[in-house]
């Protein structure tokens, strides 16, 4: 520091300038690292499965439900039942979760105040903190006997059981994101509607839900993403049987659970091993498409 006052620019030490530069570079690197990681993961998964691509019977893989990967005579790799399993569990789970999740978001955001609101938010976020294997326990030991006795069905670990677990797991995400979306709707809209004599319910379904639909849609799709990718709970609660379900009380098997259950028993580089990686690629593509669709829908809605 010199004695005579100088403009602020000149008084910056060289160290400060270097730090500024370094921090800037670091931030850039962390930003681009996300892209790097995504492509890195995709590349790794694809590389492990790729050698089998040329030998794979695509018709069988996508449309046959014969999954007999360990047969020594003629292994069959039909993933159709697994795809149906994942889709059916996800769809049923979302049918349960969306009304509850969005309903809870509306309740927390519009009807609760003060302490009740804070308590509810904490409890709902606590629900999100339960590890999925614990959900699996609940599915096996609580839900399964309950389903057997209530619905008089032979097996309690089935599509319905897993769908309820998935619903419970994705509701917290929908509530927090949905509540944020409703909170972001300007208060002037609420005032305008109320001052015209609208009831609370009219305000919600005529004004708030249309105004916040981007955020609400994002909330639902994040829940869907959570549900498709979930592994442990569905592994424990679906019944893990490779078949096309005919009722919601039939056991199913999902893509994720198949990878988790079988990958440890395959020898590296074997066809079975490579097919499991291709299933990983398939899962990756499904979530990618869901996310992309979400983005496009949200952008499209915004443009209108």
């Amino acid at each position: 520091m010199t004695d005579e006052p100088k403009p602020t620019r000149a008084r910056r030490s060289p160290l400060a300038l270097v730090t500024e530069r370094v921090v800037e570079v670091l931030i850039h690197v962390s930003g681009f690292s996300a892209i790097l990681f995504v492509f890195g993961i995709f590349f790794f998964v694809f590389k492990e499965g790729a050698p089998f691509l040329s030998k794979l019977d695509w018709m069988q893989f996508l449309f046959s439900s014969e999954w007999i990967p360990t047969s020594s005579v003629q292994p069959k790799y039909g993933a159709w039942a697994l795809i149906v399993g994942t889709m059916s569990v996800t769809v049923l789970g979302m049918l349960i979760a969306v009304p509850f999740g969005l309903g809870a978001a509306v309740f927390v955001s519009e009807f609760c105040t003060g302490r009740l609101k804070e308590t509810l938010k904490i409890v709902i976020e606590l629900l999100a903190a339960i590890p999925s294997v614990v959900w699996g326990f609940i599915g096996l030991k609580v839900m399964s006997p309950l389903i057997i006795s209530v619905f008089q069905v032979p097996v309690g670990v089935n599509l319905f059981n897993a769908a309820i677990l998935l619903a419970l797991m994705s509701v917290p995400i929908m509530v927090s994101i949905g509540e944020d979306a409703l909170k972001a709707v300007p208060d002037t809209y609420r005032e305008a509607a109320l001052a015209l004599g609208a009831t609370r319910w009219q305000t919600i379904y005529r004004v708030l839900i249309p105004a916040g639909r981007n955020g609400l849609l994002a909330a639902v799709l994040l829940g869907v993403g959570r549900a498709i990718g979930e592994t442990m709970a569905v592994l424990m609660a679906t019944g893990h049987a490779v078949k096309i379900p005919h009722s919601i009380f039939d056991p199913v098997r999902t893509l994720t659970a198949t990878i988790a259950a079988e990958l440890g028993e395959t020898s590296q580089g074997s066809p079975h091993y490579q097919v499991l990686f291709l299933i990983g690629v398939l899962l990756f593509s499904i979530t990618f498409v869901v996310n992309l669709a979400a983005d496009l829908i949200v952008k499209g809605v915004r443009r209108q």
């Binding site: 300007p186 002037t188 809209y189 005032e191 305008a192 109320l194 015209l196 004599g197 009831t199 249309p210």
Partner: peptide, 20 residues
């Protein structure tokens, strides 16, 4: 409150048409 507010309209500081 509903019929009260029906009989008494209000215009706000910032124009606040509904997002419809």
């Amino acid at each position: 409150l509903i019929s009260l507010r029906k009989a008494i309209g209000m215009v706000f500081q910032r124009p606040n048409p509904l997002p419809i």
